[in-house]
């Protein structure tokens, strides 16, 4: 027979540490705020019960997708993709110098680095739809506003990651070039950028995926692209046409994501 071991322990620690009053108040406060938000802003059970059949109704009216205007929809989709490409290209090109100015050890002066970091933070914090609204007012309806909104959004994302990628590169080659009398631009272009390139390419591909998704919705605020077609289809209750538009958007986004993923694996 196996003896049951009964260890003699004088004291067992509590499973949960006793909270101090401040932590307890903060935890309770956050939990209360979440519950309050759910009850005031979230859908009620009654609304969900009423809404679910409506969703089912809309989905049934979307089927089968209407292919009558497929050529126009595909052309619009192509223009949307061009918008994403153009916005992404402008944003990425400008992100390189902005990233250099924001990178520690590469920026010409700490004040310039702080200014560049602040600018990037502003670009990143303001949502792309808000940038689109601003540019629609500035340059008018259509794809130029969308391209500019995408470019700013890309800069907010890419410049930060470019700066980090450059900061993380091996300092050795930089020191070697400094020791032979190279200037700072030479060091950056010869040693820093080539070393940071794989990471920068991965970021750029992710930006293209992000820009493609953004370009689809920017049309909703008049910034060009297939979003306008989608809005018009819903406004006219042409749900079968809307279904076609949603499907082609889905195909484009999946194609860009898959291609981006494949390229990332090939390059890095």
């Amino acid at each position: 027979m196996i003896d049951v071991i009964k260890p003699k322990v004088s004291h067992l620690p509590p499973r949960i540490e006793r909270m101090n009053p401040i932590s307890f108040t903060l935890t309770f406060g956050v939990a209360a705020f979440v519950i309050w938000s759910l009850t005031t802003a979230g859908p009620s059970v009654e609304q969900l019960a009423r809404g679910l059949p409506n969703i089912g109704n809309i989905l049934s009216r979307m089927f089968p997708p209407d292919l009558e205007r497929i050529d126009r929809i595909l052309w619009s989709l192509f223009q949307t993709f061009q918008m994403a490409i153009a916005g992404c290209a402008i944003g990425l090109i400008l992100s390189v110098p902005l990233g250099i100015l924001a990178a520690e050890g590469l920026s010409p002066h700490p004040a310039i680095r702080t200014a560049a970091r602040s600018l990037i933070a502003v670009f990143r914090t303001v949502p792309d739809l808000v940038w689109a609204l601003i540019f629609v007012i500035a340059v008018g309806l259509g794809s130029p506003a969308g391209v500019l909104a995408i470019a700013i959004d890309v800069m907010g994302f890419a410049a930060r990651f470019f700066a980090e990628a450059m900061e993380e590169t091996d300092k050795g080659p930089r020191e070697a070039l400094s020791a032979l009398g190279a200037n700072k631009l030479g060091m950056i272009m010869s040693a820093v950028l080539p070393a940071a390139l794989p990471s920068m390419i991965a970021t750029s591909l992710y930006c293209l995926e992000k820009a493609t998704r953004a370009s689809v919705v920017l049309g909703l605020v008049g910034a060009g692209g297939i979003g306008v077609e989608l809005k018009v289809a819903f406004d006219l209750f042409a749900y079968q046409t809307a279904a076609t538009i949603i499907l082609v958007i889905l195909m484009l986004v999946i194609a860009v994501e898959q291609t981006g993923g494949w390229l990332r694996r090939k390059i890095i």
Binding site: G172, E175, A176, A191, P194
Partner: peptide
């Protein structure tokens, strides 16, 4: 240098 300090991707 002790470590060659070259840009290895180039």
């Amino acid at each position: 240098f002790q470590r060659h300090n070259l840009v290895t991707r180039l």
